[in-house]
Design a protein around this nucleic acid. Structure first.
Lengths: 350, 350
DNA sequence: GTGATCGGTGTTAGCGCTAACATGCGGTCG
DNA sequence: CGACCGCATGTTAGCGCTAACACCGATCAC
């Protein structure tokens, strides 16, 4: 069980000698080949255990061409979603016997993406997983024609290349539906950055649900995921409310922006859910402690990681899987409520 | 500049043939050896560029015994600090020509840590960086007697093993000093989990500053980094305020708990900075949008990553560096203010 | 009974690279 | 002017492993 201290490196023939077999038989045992007598297998396994032997991955990689490593590229790992996805992916990869090599892009440019993938290729990773690839980066990825399978996570759209993600459209519909069910005549939307597929999917879901309910579709406000952009959107919306416009419900593409918007509204003397209903997306650990606790949409990142790895392994094996999107769930807290009664006349829904 | 498509693998002798030299000369150029004629060097470099050649890392690792990979182990990557540290570390490592292999521990046990380090060793990483090693994990780390350099990040304490971190003690003193300067007679503290070195350092800084100012040191409240534990602490503190106890300033070991506490106080009709002053730690991107915007202590994670990698490379080279801690900075926003005037009689400081 | 087959094992070659040694050439010095 | 040195380059060996093939004894079909 114990390694014999950090003396000289232990190699396969040490194990072979101890078990009284050839090094190749040891190799066969390690790689689970058939055609090894049970008795022999047991002796070898015991020698491995006694010596604390671990095969040298570099030698193995050299001859097989496989490193059992997955390269992971992302931007904005500082955000909750990417970080959670990394966790989910790493755990799923580890379970499958793969390790994860991580690169965090400084900027989401084609150049940076190309560079990162290039480095992964040189590193002989077995596959590359790209998270939240913004458009130009993701184009670079495909233009690259990399000699390794490439999988996109949270970057749906085109079915040309394999991707898996949380069902953003359904999540956005859930959020919008919830607001509509509360009696709001329509729902305003603050988006993520234009070049994010997730952001576009959320717009699509929001719009689809509005259309399905026969509600009008107001123009959306463009955000960039940051609390500060949510704050700016909040200021703008608050001014329009003050000017008499009927804005009673806002769906934001993430929780951080929702926080910013809540703060802006509060500064203007407008509070949720009394004056306005607000729904976010992500379910940050902080979301229940916002003022007020935020109604939001939760994504299942562990499941996303699992399916991502499954997709990657499928690709490595040459299969062409098209996994279903991971479901999202609505969490109702206190930032949403019925339509406020206008200051002038009463015309609420009931 | 362009790879020739994803045909057969490109190897060193392809480059050698094109440049009209031996493969060994190519190797010398790549590894920056002296004793290569400038003319030859140039021809080889051009051939490398034209072919888009990248040396095979596995073959290189096999013969040199070095993978130019650093293993990174952490728990709780979902939190802001760890995620930022990962980013800082990855960028610094990349700059130094290393790549980062990441493992996220499911639980902070010695067993899990041993496992992770073990896997890294099998992977032949050149060094292991452990983040926020909680006590038992860090013990396991040393018991393992790993044949690779081991560096702890954000886990100060003993000077037996190399570590680098943000100066938590100084950061905590800054926060406490700020509150004292505002006229508060003492500062209450909500800590992180007991087995976290960072949490202990923050307690130490808080206590030291209180003592230095001749202020009394109230018992601290134990939290666990989560907003929910901050909320619980807030409820408790609010009740004591209601009971007439003089509690005017609270320093929390992170921003998430500060958010929870703010929410709890708000629920009890107490608001910062009118009734109480609150300081956090971390400077989450959300912190400026809390209600009210949170005064907090910011850590320089990029610098931490840089020094961490520097320390690791030093260890690989056999040096025994002891880098200075990375400074922390106070950011004053609106959650802190002068001592409130008690409801009964006026006895403020101003 | 004899050739074909198959399961278990050993032997050999070679993955792509770097280290060590070998070579050859031009210059320096006694 | 020959012994010597240092530089630029080539040749060879081998890192630790797996794949391919060789081999041998036992079983099987006819």
């Amino acid at each position: 069980m114990e390694p014999e201290g950090a003396s000289r490196a232990l190699v396969m023939s040490d194990v072979a000698a101890r078990a009284g077999v050839s090094h190749q038989t040891v190799s066969r045992v390690i790689n689970g080949h058939r055609n090894v007598a049970p008795h022999t297998r047991e002796r070898v396994e015991q020698a491995i255990r006694e010596l604390g032997y671990r095969p040298n991955t570099a030698a193995r990689a050299l001859v097989t061409g496989s490193t059992r490593t997955i390269g992971f590229v992302t931007v904005n790992i500082n955000q909750y979603g990417p970080a959670q996805t990394l966790v989910g992916l790493e755990q799923a990869a580890r379970t499958a016997g793969y390790s994860l090599s991580v690169t965090v892009l400084d900027e989401a440019t084609a150049e940076a993406m190309r560079d990162a993938v290039d480095r992964f290729v040189a590193q002989s990773v077995d596959a590359v997983v790209a998270l939240g690839t913004y458009d130009d980066a993701s184009e670079a990825l495909h233009a690259l024609d990399a000699p390794v399978p490439l999988v996109a996570v949270q970057s749906g759209g085109s079915s040309e290349w394999p991707a898996v993600g949380v069902d953003q459209v359904a999540g956005a519909r859930l959020a919008t539906r919830h607001l509509l069910d509360l009696g709001h005549r329509t729902v305003h939307h603050v988006t993520g950055p234009a070049d994010s597929q997730e952001a576009r999917d959320r717009i699509e879901g929001w719009r689809a649900e509005l259309l399905a309910a026969g509600a009008s579709v107001p123009p959306y406000l463009r955000g960039d995921w940051t609390p500060s952009s949510g704050h700016a959107a909040g200021k703008q919306l608050a001014a329009r409310v003050r000017a008499g416009e009927e804005i009673t419900a806002v769906f934001l593409a993430n929780d951080q922006m929702a926080l910013g918007l809540l703060a802006a509204f509060h500064e203007e003397g407008l509070d949720a859910p009394r004056d306005i209903s607000v729904v976010g997306f992500d379910d940050l650990p902080e979301a229940p402690y916002f003022t007020p606790p935020l109604t939001t949409v939760r994504q299942d990142f562990a499941e996303l990681g699992r399916r991502g790895v499954q997709l990657v392994l499928g690709r490595i094996a040459g299969q062409d899987l098209h996994p279903d999107p991971v479901p999202a769930a609505l969490l109702v807290r206190s930032s949403t409520g019925p339509v406020p009664v206008p200051v002038g006349a009463a015309r609420g829904v009931g």
